[in-house]
Amino acid sequence: MIGILLITHGTFGESLIQNVCHVLNKRPPLICQLGVAAQDDPLDILPLAKLLLKEVDDGDGVLIMTDILGASPSNLALKLLEQGRIEGVAGVNLPMLLRALTYRNNGIQLIMQKAISGGHDGVTNMQRP
């Protein structure tokens, strides 16, 4: 099973996990988060990020999800990537995370594709019937 590590600003990652638990009525295995505070130096929290990465990796790989490409959380995530084993996507939202959880037994490439499409498809113009 592919692990999932959320690296986000503040408590956003924990909020996403709490909402996933609400939707699924349980906490999924092999998922954790690291919240980056404004005063955190990404190099100082890199060892913690590596530790959390190991906690969610059972040997099948890990998908790292961050909120904003180019910000401190994604810059930290970039230091952890290993092509084909530890991959990353930016722009995490609840539909993206739910889609990733649904496809986490199908390989790292497919989970990345499904996560991105889930995040993209989850953004839509609502209209009254």
Rank of each mutant, 00 (worst) to 15 (best):
I2C: 03
I4V: 14
I4K: 09
L5G: 09
L5W: 05
I7A: 00
T8L: 07
G10H: 05
G10C: 06
T11C: 00
T11Q: 05
F12W: 05
F12I: 04
F12Y: 12
G13K: 03
E14H: 11
E14T: 13
L16C: 00
L16H: 08
I17A: 08
I17Q: 05
Q18Y: 08
N19C: 14
N19S: 14
V20Y: 12
C21I: 14
H22V: 13
L24C: 06
N25P: 00
K26S: 03
R27L: 01
P28S: 10
P28L: 00
P29Q: 13
L30Y: 13
L30R: 09
I31H: 04
C32H: 09
L34A: 07
L34V: 02
G35C: 05
V36S: 08
A38F: 12
A38G: 13
A38P: 05
Q39M: 10
Q39R: 15
D40M: 06
D40L: 10
P42W: 04
D44R: 02
I45S: 03
P47K: 06
L48M: 15
L48V: 12
A49L: 10
K50P: 08
K50M: 12
L51M: 13
L52Q: 10
L53F: 12
L53E: 00
K54H: 07
K54G: 06
D57W: 04
D58K: 15
D60K: 03
L63T: 07
I64K: 03
I64S: 10
T66D: 06
L69N: 00
L69F: 14
G70F: 10
A71N: 05
S72Q: 15
P73W: 01
N75P: 11
N75Y: 14
A77T: 09
L78C: 04
L78D: 07
K79N: 03
K79R: 13
L80T: 08
L81H: 09
L81A: 07
E82H: 13
Q83N: 04
G84R: 08
G84D: 02
G84W: 03
R85D: 04
R85N: 11
I86T: 12
E87N: 11
E87T: 10
G88D: 14
G88R: 08
V89T: 04
A90D: 11
G91E: 00
G91R: 09
V92S: 02
L94W: 02
L94M: 01
M96Q: 04
M96P: 04
M96E: 09
L97M: 02
L98S: 13
L98A: 04
R99L: 04
A100M: 10
A100P: 07
T102W: 13
N105R: 01
N105L: 00
N105K: 12
N106V: 01
N106S: 15
N106Y: 07
G107N: 05
L110A: 12
L110C: 02
I111E: 08
M112Y: 09
M112E: 14
M112S: 10
Q113P: 10
Q113C: 12
S117F: 07
G118L: 07
G119D: 06
D121Y: 03
D121W: 01
D121M: 00
G122C: 12
G122P: 12
T124Y: 14
R128W: 04
P129N: 09
